[in-house]
């Protein structure tokens, strides 16, 4: 009885030790929830096309969360790829380098449009960045003075808009989309209104003035959505006079429920974004640890498969889902850069 117990304990310890050293045999990806659906489509097709490799694991968790995980270190216990809906920040590159992750390959997979949509039965909105700024900024300049945003309804912003109380559902701070929304909509609107200059004239330096421009109001008219676009959609279902910020792909899957607003006179479509006409779009990225190439089986093949025309070209499954394919030369350049092993 006693010897049996000892043997059992020894066996347990042995399995624990061997598995601790057990190498990972599938690609591990984490990051942006915007890139997640694209990455899962690629992962799934990869598993089907390359039966010799297991299907990659794709974790969600946001651009920042994914990059943080990515920068923990080099080795099979750390992830290989971080998906991001924004470019990696210098501070993140620095923290990566501290943990020994020095060689990072940046891959641009295509573009994503950020669209503004309201309930399908509502009126058409022809938005300009200045409208969003005047509706949502915490402070705006009125008669030469910086005051708390006095606008109550969309009609206050522009008489052509309906007399709806302002209610906007925008991505929360942890989303990469928020940064794009701030830079390409609020800041542009702030400049267009001349408010950026007015702030600088009032003594703010440029950085403070910009930050002040895209600080959103906290009086409940602008609501941060920390979850997914499904949550934003649920808010619009509940408040038919709400305006939500969505990814183009999500909108295209819900065109029977949502009506999209034009921005600066352009309707968001994959074509208008690819042509650069629609102003609010951003590139999507993923970052690869060069040190893991050749160590994790299938990693190189996964990246190559991802950037092939079969996945991210104009008629690919990702384009069908809503990704705006990059122009031919850019895709060619991405492939060449990955093949050459260029790092940040």
């Amino acid at each position: 009885m006693k010897s049996l117990k000892v043997a059992l304990a020894a066996a347990l310890c042995a399995t624990a030790l061997t598995t601790a050293a057990h190498a990972r045999d599938q690609v591990s990806v984490a990051g942006s929830s915007t890139v997640l659906p694209y990455a899962t489509i690629v992962a799934e097709n990869f598993g089907e096309t390359f039966p010799d490799f297991p299907t990659p694991i794709v974790e969600s968790g946001g651009s920042s969360g994914g990059l943080k995980e990515f920068c923990r270190g080099v080795g099979t216990e750390f992830i290989d790829i971080a998906n991001a809906s924004r470019a990696i920040r210098d501070s993140e590159v620095a923290s990566c380098a501290e943990a020994g992750v020095t060689e990072i390959q940046e891959i641009r997979i295509g573009y994503d449009g950020i669209v503004f949509a309201s309930d399908i039965n509502g009126p058409d909105f022809a938005l300009e960045p200045i409208h969003m700024y005047q509706a949502l900024a915490a402070q705006i300049v009125v008669d030469g003075e910086l005051v708390d945003n006095p606008n109550e309804t969309w009609a206050d912003v522009n008489p052509d808009f309906p007399d709806w109380e302002i209610a906007a559902y925008i991505p929360g701070e942890k989303h990469g989309t928020r940064e794009v929304f701030e830079e390409k909509v609020l800041l542009v609107g702030c400049e267009a209104a001349g408010d950026l200059q007015a702030r600088m004239d009032a003594g703010m330096d440029e950085d403070t003035a910009e930050e002040n421009c895209y600080a959103v109001r906290k009086d409940g008219k602008s609501v941060d959505i920390d979850g997914d676009y499904t949550e934003t959609l649920a808010r619009i279902d509940a408040n038919k006079e709400g305006m939500g910020v969505f990814g183009l792909a999500f909108y295209e899957n819900n065109t029977d429920k949502l009506k999209v607003a034009t921005m600066s006179g352009v309707t968001p479509t994959t074509e208008s974004i690819a042509a650069g006409e629609y102003p609010v779009s951003r590139p999507l990225f993923f970052y690869v640890k060069k040190a893991h190439l050749g160590v994790i089986p299938g990693l190189k093949e996964y990246v190559e498969f991802f950037i092939s025309d079969a996945m991210t070209g104009p008629d690919s499954p990702l384009a069908e889902y809503g990704l705006v394919a990059a122009p031919d030369e850019e895709r060619e350049a991405t492939r060449a850069s990955f093949a050459a092993g260029e790092t940040l």
Binding site: T19, S28, A30, T40, A43, T55, I57, E59, S60
Partner: peptide, 20 residues
């Protein structure tokens, strides 16, 4: 489970508890 990476897209069946 979020922090230990189990909130993930996993398509293949895990053969052992050590697989994703």
């Amino acid at each position: 489970l979020l922090l230990i990476g189990m909130v993930a897209f996993v398509a293949d069946y895990p053969a052992t508890p050590f697989d994703p």
